[in-house]
Structure formats: structure tokens, C-alpha cells
Write a protein that binds this DNA or RNA. Structure first.
Length: 569
DNA sequence: GTATGCTGCGTTTAGACAGCATGTC
DNA sequence: CTAAACGCAGCATAC
């Protein structure tokens, strides 16, 4: 039998608890399941307790997903898995019930290591390797090992705790000993992801007025702990230089007083070719940039340049640049969104001018793909090998609606682009009321991920409408707002009016609609009795009340309102 | 006949943070 | 420089 499973069972035999850290979700689920298979609960009280927890996790989503069922089944044995795909309510109950001692083993991905304190007698690391795109399976950072191992030992209950790392070979054993037991935790800092961070950082520093010119900028970055950590100051200079130029080209900042604030796409009637626009902008700024290049950023030489009396170039955020910074958008994303909004607006204007002919339509899918292809929406839903054909069809189907060009098939970004199509398709299904169980089966999105995606989408769409306001694209505000509500509730267009009522969400609105109550007016004309049969007495009364109509006292029937409500939620 | 186990091959692979507005029986 | 394990299908064996 697997050593991990042996150790887990032995822990249970001691009537203690353990966390098993696994390197993938599939592994966490499977390991937990394998352990659960071998567990036999004898104590009736424990059985009942476990059953109760199992049920409460099962009914978090209705209808339950296969993930819910799998979790629920093993909770019966006081075993659980834990990873980011779980619904947050399930995560919560698992954590609290583990604390209460009602769950004996949790098989988890690193979520649990980073999260709140969840001390335990024994930590078992099934594997200390993890897949990384670039290097295949590689050792996890020492710091992460320490975090996981640090869960072991509960000062309140135990004198000590155990952290056990499983090695598959003698070689691995030595390596683990050297690397994790003797090794020092590495610096947290990585050079890999500097650019996006720097983009945002730079813009926010300028927008907030902390940095007003290139002198201050140089000074600021030279002094930063971050710059110190980065080490290679010249490389940092280059990056800052590049970011500055990008921010300027995107119209988020203005250099010096050489030019008035760039008005971006404010005139509605005019077709804007964004590429040309950008080039123009770059031309205009060349002189300013040259000054900057020659003068700033030579951090080591900054004294020298000051002595030479070269003047500093002013840095100022534009109106839209400020808003981008406030919205906490990556400027690259913001630019992408703005370009897409430009395109939508162009289509709208064209449609106004010529009434005939085929117009390129902007649909919900257009916007959904737009937000799906941002950095913020990463990681996108991945297209599996067998799904490729399906999603090329989806792409074809929505081709005309897209607001960005399809990259070349051999482009490195092509995969990512296709994943944005799948992600958009996921949102599309969500706002057409497809259930979470189906979404998991068909698209491999788990409830936990769904929540994160929806939150991001909500934020991005909100940001879009804020940008649209500044760009004066008024005609896009309503569609964006509608889309935002649809995303939030996961509903189709047709039942939108019903959502204004308190206590009416995705499923209740659908119920009403299917009973022929499609609008607020329909509801006003319906009797409270009818509403009661659909939604139960309490909600029926509440709706009548919200509509400003007389509320008849609730009759006490065989079933109370409480029970009805329970059934619907 | 059904359940379980083994082998071989193709496929997949952790997580989390930002803003906003408002509410849940 | 630098994979490993899961899931599934197909087949063998146990009950």
C-alpha cells in the first residue's frame, strides 16, 4: 500500500489528524478517496456527525456537481480534499470541522499552506515536486515546504508535531534532506513578472503625484528596496524606460509640457485606426522620450547629470490614466479594453450612418471574449485536446462579433487566444443559466473557479463602463450594465426585469418566468395565491409588498414558509 | 455475470490579489 | 540542465 495512505491511516488509528499535501488537484482528490476507501467508522456518534457534514457539503450547490458528490461521499468517512476548485462554503465547513476534530484527514493542494492557521498533529507531503510549465516537474521552493511543515504541531494540544516528506528513492531522500531540511529559504523576489507590476506601479506613482518628474522617478526607484532586490539596475532602467514609453503611447501619461493631454477617441463620428493613432502619438513624443532616455534612469550616473544641469521631464497622468490607476487595472489590460470599446463605438457609429448592409454586431460574447483575454482573467479555462475542434467551431460561430483580431495560428499567443474563446463560452453559458453541474461536466470549470471568474468579470465590466464614461461612449453604458447584472446573477436577458425584486435570483426568476410571469406588470396582475404556489407564502407576500400592493396575511398551511424557502435554496 | 485489478497509453498539471456596491432566509 | 501521475480503455483474473 502507498506510504502516504499508510501514514494517514496510522494517524487515524492514533485518533489524531493529518493534512496530506499533494501536487495537483486530481492527486488530492484521488488520495483522499483512496484513504476514505480504507476507513471504517464504528462509532455511531461519529458516523452521524460525518453524515451531517457530508450532507451540508452536498447541498451547497443544487443540483450538486460531481465534485460535490465526490467530496460528500468521503466526508462520510471523515476524510476530505481541499483545493481552489471547491466552493468557498465547502472550504469553510471543511476547515472548521477539521478544527473541531470532525474531519480526520484533509488532502490538499498548497491552498491550505498559505491560508489561515490550521494546525495539525501530522503533515504529510506526498510529493515535494510540482509541475512548472518551463521545467517540467521541479522541486517546490524551500519556503513553501516550510509553510506546509509549519502546520504541524498544535501548541494547545500537543507537545510536538510531525512533518513527513515522502521520498520515492534513496536519491530523492538525500535531495530532500539537502534541499529542505538543510537548505535556507530563498529570496521571495523573482524577476520574471516585473513588467506588469512595474506598469501598474509606475502609473499609480505618477497618477497619485508621488512622482512628478523623471528626476523624482530615478530617485524613487534607486532608493526602493525593490530596486535593490532586483539587483541589475541597468536592466531595471531599461524596463522602466520601456514602461514609460508604453504608458505614454497608450495615453495614460503625458511627458513634459511639450504636448497637451492626448485626447483619446473623444470624437464619435470618426473612424480611428488605433495603430496609426499610436504611431502618431509615438512620433509626437519622440523628442520628449529622447530627453528622457538621455537624461533619466542612468541611476548610477544621476549625480553627474544633475551636475550637468540637464532638466528633468515632467510626468503627469491623463484623466483616463488616473482612472485606470484607480481601478487598479493593468495598463496593458486597460489599453486592450479601450481599443475594444473604440471598435464597438466605431461599429455603432457606422450603423447610424448607413442603414443598410450587414453590420458587424457587438454581442454579449464580444464583451465576454474581450475580458476573457486580459491578464486579470488568468488562468483562462484550458482547451483540452479533445475539445479543440469544438472550440474552433465556437470561434467561427462568433467570429464577426470579436473585437480583436485572431492572432496567427503559429503565434505563441494563439493557444491563449483560443483559451479566451473557451473562457468566453463559459461566461456565455453561465449567463444563459447553465447549471454548475453541467459547467463542470462540459467545460471542466469547478464551482470555486467559477466564483473567482465571475468576480473578475464583474470588476472588468465595471471598469469598462467607467472607461466608457470617460471616453464618452454613452451608448455602451446600458449594455455593459445589463451584462454586468447578467454575469452577477447568471441569467438570460429575458428574466432580467424580475431580478429587481429582493429575494429573487437566478432560479426563482426562472421559475416565475416559466409560469408566465415575465415582467413586473405580470407580477402585479397575478394573485398572491398564485405567487404562493410558485415561491411559497413568505416570498409571495414580500413581492406583493415590494410592488406596493396590499399584502394578504399569510395563511398557515401544512408546509411553513421556512420549509419552502429551504427547499428552494 | 459482476467486481476487481492490471497494463499501457494519452493527457494533464497550484494558487490568489485588485475595485465596487449591496445585500441573506 | 529539468517529469510524473492521473484517467481511461481494454483485457485478465477473482469471486
Amino acid at each position: 500500500m502507498d506510504d502516504t495512505i499508510k501514514l494517514a491511516l496510522e494517524t487515524i488509528a492514533q485518533d489524531k489528524q493529518a493534512i496530506v499535501f499533494c501536487s495537483s488537484r486530481a492527486s488530492a482528490e484521488k488520495t483522499a478517496e483512496d484513504i476514505a476507501k480504507k476507513v471504517i467508522l464504528t462509532n455511531q456518534e461519529r458516523k452521524d456527525q460525518a453524515k451531517e457534514i457530508s450532507n451540508s457539503c452536498l447541498k451547497v450547490i443544487s443540483p450538486p456537481t460531481k465534485q460535490c458528490k465526490r467530496l460528500s461521499a468521503m466526508l462520510t468517512k471523515q476524510i476530505a480534499f481541499h483545493h481552489s476548485g471547491l466552493h468557498s462554503k465547502q472550504k469553510d465547513t471543511i476547515e472548521t470541522e477539521f478544527k473541531h476534530g470532525n474531519i480526520k484527514i484533509i488532502c490538499a493542494t498548497p491552498t491550505l499552506a498559505a491560508g489561515l492557521s490550521l494546525p495539525v498533529f501530522r503533515v504529510i507531503c506526498k510529493s515535494l515536486k510540482r509541475f512548472t510549465g518551463r521545467f517540467g516537474m521541479s522541486w517546490i521552493p524551500t519556503l513553501e515546504y516550510l509553510q506546509m511543515a509549519g502546520r504541524a504541531g498544535r501548541p494547545e494540544y500537543e507537545d510536538f508535531g510531525e512533518a513527513i516528506a515522502i521520498a520515492k528513492t534513496q536519491n530523492e531522500k538525500d535531495e530532500i534532506y539537502q534541499r529542505y531540511i538543510c537548505g535556507k529559504p530563498e529570496e521571495i523576489y523573482s524577476k520574471l513578472n516585473v513588467e506588469p507590476v512595474l506598469r501598474m506601479y509606475l502609473l499609480s506613482l505618477i497618477a497619485s503625484g508621488i512622482i512628478r518628474d523623471t528626476d523624482q522617478m530615478s530617485e524613487f526607484f534607486a532608493k526602493t528596496f525593490w530596486a535593490h532586490q532586483f539587483g541589475d539596475l541597468e536592466e531595471l532602467e531599461e524596463i522602466i524606460q520601456r514602461m514609460l514609453k508604453l504608458l505614454e503611447g497608450w495615453g495614460f501619461i503625458v511627458l513634459g509640457d511639450l504636448k497637451k493631454e492626448q485626447k483619446r477617441s473623444l470624437s464619435l463620428g470618426k473612424q480611428k485606426n488605433s495603430k496609426n493613432q499610436k504611431e502618431d502619438a509615438n512620433d509626437l513624443f519622440t523628442s520628449a522620450l529622447e530627453i528622457v532616455s538621455n537624461k533619466t534612469m542612468k541611476l548610477e550616473k544621476s549625480k553627474e547629470s544633475k551636475d550637468n544641469g540637464v532638466f528633468s521631464v515632467q510626468l503627469r497622468a491623463t484623466k483616463i490614466g488616473k482612472r485606470v490607476s484607480e481601478l487598479y487595472l493593468d495598463p496593458l489590460t486597460a489599453n486592450h479594453l479601450i481599443e475594444c470599446l473604440d471598435k464597438v463605438q466605431y461599429r455603432i457609429d457606422q450603423a447610424k450612418n448607413q442603414s443598410t448592409g450587414d453590420q458587424l454586431k457587438t454581442t454579449a460574447f464580444s464583451y465576454l471574449q474581450m475580458i476573457s483575454n486580459t491578464l486579470e482573467m488568468r488562468p483562462r479555462l484550458r482547451i483540452k485536446v479533445k475539445e479543440q475542434e469544438y472550440y474552433s467551431n465556437v470561434l467561427l460561430q462568433h467570429y464577426e462579433e470579436l473585437l480583436q483580431e485572431e492572432p496567427d495560428v503559429f503565434d505563441l499567443n494563439y493557444n491563449d487566444f483560443m483559451n479566451s474563446i473557451k473562457t468566453a463560452e463559459f461566461f456565455q453559458k453561465w449567463i444563459n443559466e447553465v447549471g454548475e453541474d453541467v459547467l463542470l461536466d462540459e467545460m471542466n470549470v469547478r464551482p470555486g473557479e467559477i466564483r473567482v471568474k465571475l468576480e473578475n468579470a464583474n470588476w472588468l465590466i465595471y471598469s469598462c463602463s467607467e472607461l466608457a464614461k470617460i471616453l464618452n461612449y454613452k451608448s455602451q453604458l446600458a449594455p455593459l450594465q445589463r451584462l454586468r447584472i447578467r454575469i452577477k446573477f447568471g441569467v438570460s436577458e429575458e428574466i432580467l426585469p424580475l431580478l429587481k425584486l429582493k429575494g429573487v435570483g437566478r432560479s426563482r426568476a426562472r421559475k416565475l418566468f416559466n409560469q408566465g410571469l415575465k415582467t413586473i406588470v405580470d407580477l402585479k396582475n397575478s394573485s398572491q395565491t398564485d405567487l404562493t404556489t410558485i415561491l411559497g407564502p413568505k416570498l409571495a407576500a414580500s413581492i406583493k409588498d415590494q410592488l406596493g400592493q396590499k399584502v394578504e396575511p399569510i395563511k398557515k398551511g401544512k408546509r411553513t414558509g421556512q420549509m419552502n424557502l429551504g427547499k428552494f435554496t
